[in-house]
Structures are given as C-alpha cells and as structure tokens.
Design a protein around this nucleic acid. Sequence first.
DNA 1: ATTTTTTTAGACACAACTGTCCAATCAGTC
DNA 2: GACTGATTGGACAGTTGTGTCTAAAAAAAT
Lengths: 216, 216
Amino acid sequence: MNAYPFDMNVIETKLSKRDRILEAAAAILCQDGFAGASIDAVATRANVSRQTIYNHVGDKEGLFKAVIKELAERSTEHFFEMLEEFPDIDNSDDSLQSGLSAFGTRILYHMTHDKTARWLMRLVQNEGERYPELLSGWREYGPGRKNPALAAKFASLAHAGVIRREDPTLTARQFMALLTAEWRPETQLGHLPDEETCRAMAERGVRAFVAAYAIK
Amino acid sequence: MNAYPFDMNVIETKLSKRDRILEAAAAILCQDGFAGASIDAVATRANVSRQTIYNHVGDKEGLFKAVIKELAERSTEHFFEMLEEFPDIDNSDDSLQSGLSAFGTRILYHMTHDKTARWLMRLVQNEGERYPELLSGWREYGPGRKNPALAAKFASLAHAGVIRREDPTLTARQFMALLTAEWRPETQLGHLPDEETCRAMAERGVRAFVAAYAIK
DNA sequence: ATTTTTTTAGACACAACTGTCCAATCAGTC
DNA sequence: GACTGATTGGACAGTTGTGTCTAAAAAAAT
C-alpha cells in the first residue's frame, strides 16, 4: 500500500512527525482514557492534521498500540540505565543503606517525574483490564524483563552475604513496595514530590528494607 | 421539584431501585471509564428505564458522584469491621507473626475479592486525576480516616514494646506496602488469588515486616 | 524545474450518546 | 374503585466522535 523510501532524511522527518503524534496521543490517552480520547484532540495537540494520524497508525486502536509499544520500549531502556547504578557490594552495613538509598532515590524520582514512566503506568492500570491482549505483550517485555533483572541484583547481594537469602523475586518486590510505600497517597493528588522528598521517602523505605534483610 | 413520600415501604423500594442503579453504574464505570460508560448501558444492566436514572441522580456526573459516595461509605465500613480483628498485644514474637498474618490475610483477601473495594480503588485510580474535586471528599473520608486508624493500632503495638518505635503512619503504610507487594503483578491479569494464595502472600509480607519491626 | 510523495483542511456519512419530553402504565394508598 | 406519584418505553434534537474521501498545498527527490 504505502511504499516508504528508505532515505535517511525522509525517515528522520517521518519519525519526528510520528513522534509528535505518539507523544500527544500518550498524553491524551492518559488524561482521558481510551474512550474519552478523541483523534481530533491528538491531532490538535500534535499540530498535525487528523488524516496524517490515520495514515500512520490506521485507526484508534492502532494508535493505542503504537503508544504502548513506544512507551514500553523507552521505559525499559531507562530502567536498565538506572539498574547500572545498583550499588556494588562491600561488607559495610552503612554502605548498604546509603547505596540502596541512592539507587532507590533515583528510581523513585524517575517513577514520579518521568512522563514516559507515569504515562505507561497509568495506561496499563487504566486500560489493562479492558484490552488484555494489547498489554500481554507489554507484560512480557516490561515486568517480564525488569523483575528478573532487579531480582538478580538482590540475588548477588544475598550471595555475597550482605542480605538474607530469600527468593530474590520476592526480595525485589518487597524492596520496590517499601520504596513506593509513601508514594501513592502523595501522587494521587497530582503534585509531584521534589527530589529532596524522594530522597527522604527512599531513605525511609530502604531503612525498613535493611532492617528486614541486612545480615546485621 | 420532587416531593418524595417518607413512608417506609416506598423508601424501601426506592432504595432498592436506587441500589440497583448504583451497583450497575459502579460496575460499568469501572469497566469503561467515565467517558466510555453510557447511561443506556447502566439502565440495561440495572433493569431500569433510562429516565429513572435521570430522576434519581440528575445527570451523568451526579451518577458518578453518587457511586463514589456509596462505594466509599461501604468500603470504610468494611475496613473498620476488619480493623477489629487487628491482633491483640502480648509479648510472644510468634503471635505477632501469626496475628498480623491472619489480619493481613483478611485485608488482602478483601482487597482482591470484594467488589466494592476493587471498584472504588479502580475508580479512584482511573478518574482521580480528571475529577479531583469529586475525590477530594473521598480522600478525607477514605484514607483520611483509614490511615490514622490503622496507624493507631501500630502505635499501640509500639507502645507495648512489641515493635520498634517509629512514625506510626509510616509503619502502617509500610505494612500495607509489604502486604500488597506481590499483589499488583498478580491482579493486573484479572484472575483473582484464592484464599490460600492470599494467606501465603500475607505471611511473606508480614515476615518481612516482623523482621524489620519486631523487637527481637 | 519537474515529478513524486506527504500533508493539509474541509466536507461527508454514519453511529453513539446525552439530556429532555411525553403519553401510557404500574403500584401502592385512601 | 379512584387517586397519586413513580416508572416505563419510545421519540426527539443536538452534540460529539470515527473513519473516509478529495482537491489543494507543501515538501522532498530526481
């Protein structure tokens, strides 16, 4: 149907326009939900004619899928970047607290402030039940890769004798749960916690985690 | 405008009909979101004519408000019932683990299975950002009353010397976080955990909590 | 400069939904 | 049995949204 020329510049401008569409669509889908989002609103926000959207993604469902895919890719990418800051192991208990706090602060700040992360989480929560097939792919690609990666980090901490030996997946989930324990009530109002607040929340969460898991 | 007779039977049938409407509306609002939910769908599900809905709640926003209010009331009611099962204090470490586990199991099972709780949580998550004024009332009435009540329970545990002294609100939130640490990934797929699974998840969460907080 | 492709604005048919209105019906009450 | 208010089904206008189409304009490629 459409034969796109594969010259770089063409692709570049095409991607740029496509990206504008996806960005606008993500924002509006998050805000209004799938049913409430209108293609016209997306077109307006993206500074693009409505027809162009149909040319790119076919129809509304195609737009939704494209947004999810884009957000999921960027999100896991960011996650693995952050995962490289997971603290290295040495045997000082103090550095476990401070190392995990720094890591946790980074994660928490990212979760609360990065548009990609917030939009994706919101879309998954909102529309996950309604369009399970659209999100099954995300499930494999997102949590299906993030959780094991984080679990592996904690497994190596356990292997080094720094924390208690447990199911690493459980450990990772409990770590994340403690990290975000104070966040939900905070975020639901809409105003974002500043970095200092994130640091404080992460520190308190990590303190509980260390109390539970550190080998004294 | 409407002068309702205050005879008991009339009220009863009226409430019954009103309840059918609210039940149907809650289900459909959760499933389709505010924008996606249609009054006709609610009317059909409630076995009621559309006009009756308008008679009762005015318009779509009124329906939404009424549903939130109804769910919030029932939800806090249930919560305070469950809160009575919070374990009494004695000094055996073992009973702290088992007592909190039993309590946590109850909470977790309720959160995952009770329609009221699930619908309310879902509505708040989905539409909370869009209609902040509708939910500010809920915020005061729901978490604004639940959190302090739970925190008080942990405060008395701390006062009795059974757990570490900390900010009780933080303690309560971390307890809830650990309790539900394994739940989100589970629930997003739609199939509910059975009671045995809830018990196991609660036990693991409580184990971490006890490890972090129990005065050995 | 010419050709090719993408983009645009607007019009269009079609469907769905909201909120209102009304005449007919039903369920209790006097 | 007559009366009163709640309820019903259906019709209605007005709005909004989707997805398609077309001719014109803009941009890119040759």
